[in-house]
């Protein structure tokens, strides 16, 4: 076991809720909107402290997002807290028209994304969300990797005045963000330098990328590990530096490979500096039954899977 594997792990929803309450104490424009998701979005404390500023519309996602856009029009900063699959799938047109196109300062917080709801199955998985929201113009897409980035994301989204989508992990992850790490658009976080291959990982896959780098290091392979909290707008400079300076790029995300991080990196690389790549994620299938850890391993979204992709890239280009 590496040191990382022995670390404590965190459900980022707690950091999210604590930071949102802290922010609400400082700024009375902050309001939370949810769809019968007070518990699953960890908003019980927020409701107790700010009963008037938590609006629960019930199980009605179109109203959820439309109402948030109206609140932004009225001068509030709404944080929409809802399970990611229903927030993005059910209300995508509201996200596009009422929020992004209307330039409404709404913070869309997709809770329990990816395959966090494991055994509940594909209706409750949110592996398409990154593809969907990336396709919408004027919407920043932020995927925190740990509690530190979750707190930074909440602060950044409130201060930015732009519409954003935050993907708040539920699957427990270790802390990965160094103390002095940047958190801003177009800025990757360099977690480990290396010159053979670059692994770019987001969210729950970040710590797994570090574990893979540890294992490969024992084999004499030097891996650069980048974390990309902002998928939109992407850090093109770091991506292209990786394409130039290392022999290829492996991307890893808890999402479908159709349109997420891997697709964003691939488009940048192939347009500007073609380099071999491996895109790790969920292929275009609905997941079988299993808990989150099982499903991540099943789709090769593990330290072993990432290490294998790096070896393949080095062997075959």
């Amino acid at each position: 076991m590496t040191v990382l594997e022995q670390q404590a792990t965190f459900d980022c929803r707690q950091a999210f809720a604590e930071e949102l309450s802290a922010l609400a104490r400082q700024d009375e424009r902050i309001v939370a909107i949810c769809n019968d998701s007070v518990g699953s979005s960890n908003l019980v404390g927020f409701r107790e402290e700010f009963p008037d500023r938590l609006i629960n519309v019930g199980i009605a996602e179109q109203e959820l997002v439309g109402l948030a856009a109206g609140l932004a029009n009225a001068g509030k900063i709404p944080f929409v807290c809802a399970a990611a699959p229903f927030l993005t799938g059910r209300a995508l047109e509201q996200i596009k028209a009422d929020v992004a196109y209307s330039e409404a300062h709404v913070v869309l917080c997709g809770q329990s994304p990816g395959m966090a709801y494991g055994e509940l199955g594909p209706t409750h998985h949110s592996i398409e969300d990154l593809s969907w929201v990336r396709a919408v113009a004027n919407l920043d897409v932020i995927v925190p990797a740990d509690p530190v980035q979750t707190r930074l994301a909440v602060r950044w989204a409130a201060a930015s005045s732009r519409p954003s989508y935050l993907r708040i992990p539920r699957f427990k992850v270790p802390a990965v963000t160094p103390a002095d790490a940047p958190f801003e658009p177009r800025r990757a976080v360099l977690l480990r330098d290396g010159d053979d291959v670059t692994v770019i990982a987001i969210g729950s896959l970040t710590s797994r990328a570090l574990q893979a780098a540890d294992r490969l290091s024992e084999e004499g392979v030097s891996v650069r590990v980048l974390n990309m909290p902002f998928i939109e707008p992407l850090d093109l400079d770091s991506v292209l530096a990786a394409a130039r300076e290392t022999r290829g790029i492996v991307t890893a995300e808890e999402a479908t490979i159709s349109g997420g991080l891997g697709a964003a990196v691939a488009a940048a690389v192939v347009t500007n500096h073609p380099a071999p790549m491996r895109i790790l994620g969920v292929p275009r299938v609905f997941a079988p039954t299993g808990d989150t850890a099982f499903l991540l391993d099943h789709f090769g979204l593990s330290a072993d899977g990432i290490a294998e992709a790096v070896r393949s890239l080095l062997s075959h280009g």
């Binding site: 609006i55 439309g66 109402l67 948030a68 856009a69 029009n73 509030k76 028209a97 209307s102």
Partner: peptide
């Protein structure tokens, strides 16, 4: 608010009204 896709105005309007009430 930008409209065109139908069924969007009333939800947004409810948000404006909640904001005024708050």
């Amino acid at each position: 608010t930008n409209t065109g896709a139908l069924g969007h105005g009333l939800p947004v309007a409810t948000g404006c009204a909640v904001g005024a009430k708050l």
